[in-house]
């Protein structure tokens, strides 16, 4: 199976995603320049983290106009798997592929540290290797990660089980003090109604190797591989 990793001007977790897919999980991986108009031969598209176009406007607000995003929409319509991590999540929100928006962190500062998230729905292509309510330790690294949605959107997210991850404490309790950025309902990751597009603020690609002291992120990639292989 083959992963495509999008590269926008300013993407900077593209190499990290490539490394995990290619050298840790031994899958095929290829960088896709943002000016490409077609996505052919890929099972999964990763929109990596970084600062596309410097994030000088709103995060992801310029990247959504890149030619490749049209192809991404088509890829999504055809049921392809898409995972947006951090800036990738922000781009998916701006492009309207996922509902809601992210605001500046409550602290108004960039935050880079390990946090805990609880898996809210393990019946997805991205979480099927996690037990129900499994708690994962993953790092976050963002200045704008406070997820927001209006009440209607929020209730439909809840109803359709589109909330995939919530910030929690070590034992899986959803508390205010476990919420690093002020996200509504402690939301750390959501998917679309169809379930083939995931957006998440934490970085699974940063914790998928024993030498880095944490392999929790591997579960996300393993879930994806499992899902595609079963198909």
């Amino acid at each position: 199976m083959k992963f495509g990793i999008l590269v926008f001007p300013g993407s900077n977790c593209d190499h990290d995603c490539y490394h995990v897919v290619r050298h840790v999980l031994n899958c095929e991986a290829e960088f896709v320049w943002h000016k490409e108009k077609e996505l052919r031969g890929f099972d999964v598209i990763i929109i990596p983290g970084g600062f596309s176009y410097g994030d000088y406007l709103r995060t992801g607000a310029i990247a959504k106009f890149s030619p490749v995003m049209k192809a991404v929409k088509k890829f999504a319509r055809n049921g392809g798997l898409i995972i947006g991590i951090c800036n990738g999540f922000q781009i998916l929100l701006e492009a309207g592929l996922l509902p809601g928006a992210v605001l500046r962190n409550k602290s108004l500062k960039f935050i880079c540290k390990d946090i805990f998230i609880r898996v809210e729905n393990n019946n997805t292509p991205f979480t099927n290797q996690c037990n129900d309510n499994k708690v994962l330790k993953l790092p976050i690294a963002h200045a704008e990660g406070s997820y927001f949605a209006d009440p209607d959107t929020l209730s439909s997210l809840i109803k359709n089980q589109q909330i995939i991850f919530r910030y929690s404490d070590k034992s899986g309790n959803i508390t205010d003090s476990a919420n690093p950025n002020g996200s509504i309902e402690n939301i750390a990751g959501i998917c679309n109604k169809e379930g083939n597009i995931l957006g998440m603020m934490p970085h699974p690609e940063r914790c998928a190797e024993a030498i880095l002291g944490n392999e929790d992120g591997k579960l996300i990639f393993k879930s994806i591989i499992n899902f595609v292989k079963v198909l």
Partner: peptide, 8 residues
């Protein structure tokens, strides 16, 4: 405040 983990 520093991204100290990027590049893994």
């Amino acid at each position: 405040q520093y991204d100290h983990m990027v590049r893994t």
